[in-house]
Design a protein around this nucleic acid. Sequence first.
DNA 1: CCTTAAGGCCAATGGATTTGCCTTTAGGTT
DNA 2: AACCTAAAGGCAAATCCATTGGCCTTAAGG
Lengths: 189, 189
Amino acid sequence: MTRPGGRSARVREAVHRAVIELLAEGETTAGVPQIAERAGVNPTSVYRRWGSCASVLLDAAVARLSLTSPVPDTGSLRGDVEQWATAVERALADPDGAVLVRALITFIGTNADPIEHLLSRGEDLEQMLTAAAARGEPALDLQELLDYVLAPLYLRVLLSRPIEPGIGVQLADRLLTAAGLPPASGQGG
Amino acid sequence: MTRPGGRSARVREAVHRAVIELLAEGETTAGVPQIAERAGVNPTSVYRRWGSCASVLLDAAVARLSLTSPVPDTGSLRGDVEQWATAVERALADPDGAVLVRALITFIGTNADPIEHLLSRGEDLEQMLTAAAARGEPALDLQELLDYVLAPLYLRVLLSRPIEPGIGVQLADRLLTAAGLPPASGQGG
DNA sequence: CCTTAAGGCCAATGGATTTGCCTTTAGGTT
DNA sequence: AACCTAAAGGCAAATCCATTGGCCTTAAGG
């Protein structure tokens, strides 16, 4: 029998918060003992539940990023893409989000699981694009969406460049323009 | 007095090769002792010169990446951008290059130095774009070059997706098209 | 009020890191 | 060319610290 709630949940929460905090403070070399102390938890407990610092990080990152950027459904391709881009922009502009993305990237080389997780989100996005095409809007590729919008945002995070407010929409517009969709007039019609 | 050559240089070389090899073999958790053994060097020497595994990696990455992708000067904007994109593509398609980029990203959060190094290359690229604008060609932004070409390539590396051959030129064309430069006819004039 | 999953504590353990000292040798000098 | 000198490497012993294992305590979930 597994026990998802109560003390276990509190420990999980505390540990997640601890890693994120430590990373945000630049303590990138913190080990399990440091995390445990910050979380007010015994190191042994962390070792038993997660086994390593990397797993903790991964768990925290996936838990956090799952709450972010749900796939939108505004009824128009432009609306969907812009809304999604904005959500990603917001997620990455938040220092915690940035830190988690970097951590995720770091450990993706080791673990295949997080990639799977990300790709499953990709399928949702693909559906969003497919639905738009079915409505008669321009057909977009998931890869194009990633190239035009996600990649530039990630590059900023990874190189520690600032995320300019509004950049999400701007990137989305580049994609939509390249796809032949006229720029939004903003006046409807 | 510092001694850049002779045995020191050999040790440096051997250690660089060792980290790259180990990473390429998937030994992402290798520590200083493993690196030293692979390099045929005493661990103490590694500790004294670099202090940590991260520094070794960084040193190796910067040393290696400095040799790659020199800024081109073909006389035409399209030629320059396409050639640069292809060089980057080639660098990232090489497993060693990919591994180093990921390593670099991982430790950029900690160290500011490598960012400086990368940005200094950015200035060279900016000159390339400025020179083209001075010739009357479309004026491009460094940021656009990074967004359209570098970011998508990096994203592939970071998410462990394959780098499709020719993708460099394809990305370059997107940028050039967006800039109003007609696609290459390949027939000149 | 049970049962037992999960956490805490403490005492090993083992490998990474540091330290002191000696040997090699790069780079310069005579 | 032989010859300094000190920077850099090697070696071994000492130390430090993350990780593990055994055992007890707490408290979910029924």
